[in-house]
Amino acid sequence: MQQKPDNRLKIENLTVFRSELPLFEPVSFSMKAGEAIQIKGTNGSGKTSLLRCLCGLSHRHQGLIRWNDANIDDVKDDFYAHLLYIGHALGLKPKLSIEQNLDFYQQLRFTQDQAIILQALEQLKIGAYHDELVGNLSAGQKRRVALARIISEPVSLWVLDEPMVALDVEGQAWLERACNQHLADGGMIILTSHQTIEGINGLTELRLNETNWKETYLMDEGLA
């Protein structure tokens, strides 16, 4: 495990824009090793957009995102070496097997460790299908394959967008255990979920409040 206990992520007055209008009121938070945050908000409140900005995929935001006190765009290589993002689109190739998919992502991180891939799949109860094409799997199994990356690519910051979706009770319990283990090892987790997650130790909650831009906008225009 390449854990550096001194990694810090700091968000200051961050808000994300869509069509030049802010999606939510500015949020600030900071996290260090062993902390986990659950981002909550209604549908369309900007949870996914926030995570994409956090990962540097999107730049439609205002405010600061700092990794070890430096802007993430300035320390991209270091930040990405510590980051694992699993979004709604899982990034799996349906035409490749489970193992090939996981193996490819390991290679991008300059490692190759088949044993840990098989071990991750075993934990997720999909070890028997490691040669199966991802395209033949069910939605829940695909989610499990994507989540296997949290084991097969040990990094310190996990950013998980709705990781519980499509998982059965057993899968959710596994994810909670994996998260707890990760936090105990000094990792950091940011996740979004509509469910109340009770199994993860010390999970703090961050609620995104919708901006009242509609009223402000209408008042400015003299329409209300």
Partner: peptide, 9 residues
């Protein structure tokens, strides 16, 4: 499928 963004990440 989200593969491109994973490559960038």
């Amino acid at each position: 499928e989200g593969g491109l963004e994973q490559l960038l990440l």
